[in-house]
Write a protein that binds this DNA or RNA. Structure first.
Lengths: 206, 206
DNA sequence: TCCAAAACAGGATGATCATCCTGTTTATAA
DNA sequence: TTATAAACAGGATGATCATCCTGTTTTGGA
């Protein structure tokens, strides 16, 4: 059977026999998890290689330096986690406040179910890497900014619908993100998600 | 002049010719600063020795392990910083809300003046060390707890004076600490203290 | 079929790090 | 004074780490 029948080079079908982008993806999976659980400095490339089952050559091929790996984790995984956990649910919610409430609720419920708290991926890496390197800091600051902007935009949408007239979008967004980040910090340190519910309740009754 | 005149062995006057506890104090000074600016893992004992001007033997004498040094920094310095920055001002304020407002204001002003943000010492170490070691976690969780309790107690005092009748002390304290911690996280990542003022304003108008 | 580049394998390397060890000095108590 | 322990000095040590280097295999296009 000739191969020229379905050939569409322009589409770049990226045909691969085994696992497309498998090596790179597996390294990112392991790195994301280890950076979250142990942090950047405490995660050695040797550990990551062993956990991912890849050789030093393979790791170095996809990520020339540890910093490059971390930047990839931030850009491709941490940003996606914030998008999935926060931005999409808030945009889909009936209102900004209801969206924020629902995310707090969902995260608290999940943490209580799994029994331990690893913290917010963005916040964890931000603390360890923001002052260490300008590239890290810029990447992390961009995610924080997009997160806040999504909430502020939702408030603005609410206002166009006649609600939240007395609310400042930027300030509300800052408060929501700060409260969540801080509550996750305490929950991680106490290994107890109760403080998340306390903060949610206080936000409502304030 | 004989030395037996003012001799009071029971009092343990701890007479020292030069600097009493100087070595240990200098190491703690340097370690506190380096842990804050670079983090625990990124601070090598060699760097600390050089910065403090102490030998390896001296460092090892006062702090047998790096972990012991970090625990001393947490117990003696981080706890004191929270006490000085938050607990004392809140207790001395006219009310809990006024105390929280004043601390936010003071910290924001100081950050804007010094031009850069290194973050909250407690929060910084909590993120890096909470999951790394149970002893670290316990020490840091205790400081968070005392911090919240001081604010909650102030709310209770306000309530005994007839104010804040509709406020839950624990929830308010959790919200205040979470908002501050999260705002400092963002301020550190953005290297901009504006978000602190945004959060303070949102707390007031919420 | 053939060739060039990408994708890997696996060990080498030099630097760094925390800890430990052997002395030497200093302070305290008897 | 003298004995004893604490307080230091400074280098040794073994482990660990990120990076690099030399090959080998695989892939995709001509």
């Amino acid at each position: 059977m000739s191969a020229e029948i379905a050939a569409q080079p322009a589409l770049r079908a990226r045909k691969r026999v085994n696992d497309p982008e498998g090596m790179r993806r597996k390294v990112l999976d392991v790195a994301e998890e280890s950076f979250q659980a142990r942090g950047y400095h405490a995660s050695s490339l040797g550990d990551l290689m062993a956990a991912a089952g890849v050789s030093g050559g393979a790791l170095h091929h996809h990520f020339p330096t540890k910093k490059a790996l971390a930047l990839a984790v931030i850009d491709e995984r941490v940003a996606a986690a914030v998008e999935e956990t926060w931005i999409v649910p808030v945009q889909a919610a009936a209102s900004a406040r209801e969206g924020v409430r629902a995310v707090f609720e969902a995260v608290a419920a999940q943490l209580e179910q799994q029994g331990f708290v690893r913290g917010c991926p963005l916040n964890n890496l931000a603390h360890e890497l923001s002052l260490a390197d300008p590239d890290f800091r810029a990447a992390l600051a961009g995610i924080f900014s997009a997160w806040r902007q999504a909430i502020a935009d939702k408030i603005s949408a609410d206002q166009r619908a006649g609600r939240e007239q007395g609310t400042d979008p930027q300030r509300f967004a800052a408060l929501a993100v700060a409260t969540y980040s801080g509550a996750m910090s305490m929950a991680k340190t106490a290994q107890d998600a109760t403080v998340l519910r306390d903060c949610l309740a206080a936000l409502g009754e304030a």
